[in-house]
Computed example of a mutant assay.
Amino acid sequence: MDRHRIPSLAYYTTRSGTMHYSSNSISFSVNRLIKMEATLSRVARLQRERRKGGSWMGKFSKMADLINSDVFLAFSTYTTIVILKMMLMSPLTGYFRITRKAFQNWEDTWMGKQDPEERKKMLQTNPDVERVRRCHHNDLENIIPFVVIGLLYTLTGPDLSIALLHFRVFVGSRFIHTVSYVMSLPQPSRALSWVVGMITTFSMAYRVLTTALHL
Rank of each mutant, 00 (worst) to 15 (best):
M1I: 08
M1H: 08
D2R: 15
R3I: 11
R5N: 08
L9E: 11
T14L: 14
T14Q: 14
S27A: 14
F28E: 10
V30I: 15
E37S: 11
S41N: 15
V43E: 12
A44Q: 11
S55L: 14
G58W: 04
F60S: 10
K62M: 09
K62C: 05
M63F: 10
M63D: 08
A64E: 11
A64C: 09
D65H: 13
D65V: 06
L66H: 06
I67K: 07
F72M: 15
L73M: 14
T79F: 06
T80C: 06
V82G: 02
I83V: 15
K85D: 12
M86T: 13
M87C: 05
L88G: 04
M89Y: 01
T93L: 09
Y95L: 14
I98N: 09
I98H: 10
R100W: 03
E117I: 15
E118H: 12
E118S: 11
R119W: 02
K121P: 00
V129Q: 03
E130M: 13
V132Y: 03
R134N: 09
C135D: 05
H136W: 00
I149K: 01
G150T: 02
L151H: 09
L152Y: 03
Y153G: 02
P158I: 01
L160T: 12
V169I: 14
V171K: 04
V171E: 04
G172N: 14
G172C: 00
F175E: 13
V179E: 08
V182P: 02
M183C: 13
S184T: 06
S184C: 06
S184N: 10
L185V: 02
Q187W: 07
P188K: 01
R190H: 04
R190M: 07
R190Q: 13
W194A: 12
G197Q: 03
M198A: 10
T200S: 10
T201G: 01
S203I: 03
R207S: 15
A212C: 07
A212R: 08
L215W: 12
